[in-house]
């Protein structure tokens, strides 16, 4: 594949995600496969790059939650085609990661969690999604059962964020090595510190960035 052709396909993957054009994404993903592009490259430099740009627009208040959700749908459309062809990260010698994620009990808002989930999936992580309104002990059990490296907790409301503190404490007691990332509208840097989390994401856009960064840094290991 010529560098120009590669650039064209990656560009359309990213643009399709950014403009929530599922058809454009599907077509570009198919062309990528047909013409022998590395599926991992198509995902990271195409789909994920487009999603990252959507996150930047959210931060600038040009995009809002509905737009992000539609971008995520477009990303999924591409991922469905590319994923079966992605090199397993294990064979690659790269990271084989597992993450337990869910929205804490009392909270039924899972949009942020779903956006973060899609990034982890794109990166080839094995995601153990516990869904929403998840009882605290379930996180602890699932982390132990799967021996996941990351536990990602989400809360949309102050009234439920408070429960994260107990989850973090319980997980750290059982397995001090597990990294805990928290996110959601009411969470702040200070609260993440106070609760003993390893990482935090301020809002939907930062959750995406945090996920991307976390994945990126793990990929470099």
């Amino acid at each position: 594949m010529t560098p120009e052709r590669e650039k064209d396909i990656l560009g359309r993957l990213a643009e399709g995600v950014l403009n929530y054009d599922e058809e454009m994404v599907r077509q570009a993903a198919q062309e990528a496969l047909d013409e022998g592009m590395d599926a991992n490259k198509a995902v990271f430099d195409g789909l994920v790059a487009g999603m990252k740009e959507a996150g930047d627009l959210y931060e600038k208040q040009e995009y809002f939650v509905p737009e992000l959700l539609m971008c995520a749908d477009a990303l999924y459309a591409g991922l469905e085609i590319l994923r079966p062809h992605m090199k397993s990260t294990k064979e690659d010698g790269g990271v084989k990661g597992q993450v337990v994620m869910g929205v804490v009990q009392g909270d039924v808002h899972d949009i942020g969690k779903n956006l973060v989930k899609i990034m982890f999936e794109a990166a080839g992580f094995e995601v153990h999604d516990l869904g929403k309104d998840v009882p605290l002990e379930k996180f602890v059990e699932e982390q132990l059962k799967t021996d996941s490296e990351i536990v990602a907790l989400s809360a949309m409301m102050t009234t439920t964020m408070v429960g994260m503190k107990d989850v973090i404490k319980a997980i750290k007691e059982k397995n001090p090595k597990a990294k805990i990332m928290i996110g959601g509208a009411p969470v702040t840097d200070e609260i993440a510190d106070r609760f003993g989390a390893d990482g935090y994401a301020k809002d939907a856009s930062n959750a995406l960035k945090e996920a991307i960064n976390m994945i990126a840094s793990l990929r470099e290991l």
Binding site: Q105, G106, D107, V108, D133, P135, T159, T160, V162, G163
Partner: peptide, 15 residues
């Protein structure tokens, strides 16, 4: 769901 069985404080949600 009023979370009557949960020990800590939670606001009800729609299940």
């Amino acid at each position: 769901n009023a979370y009557e069985d949960v020990a800590h404080l939670l606001y009800p949600t729609i299940k």
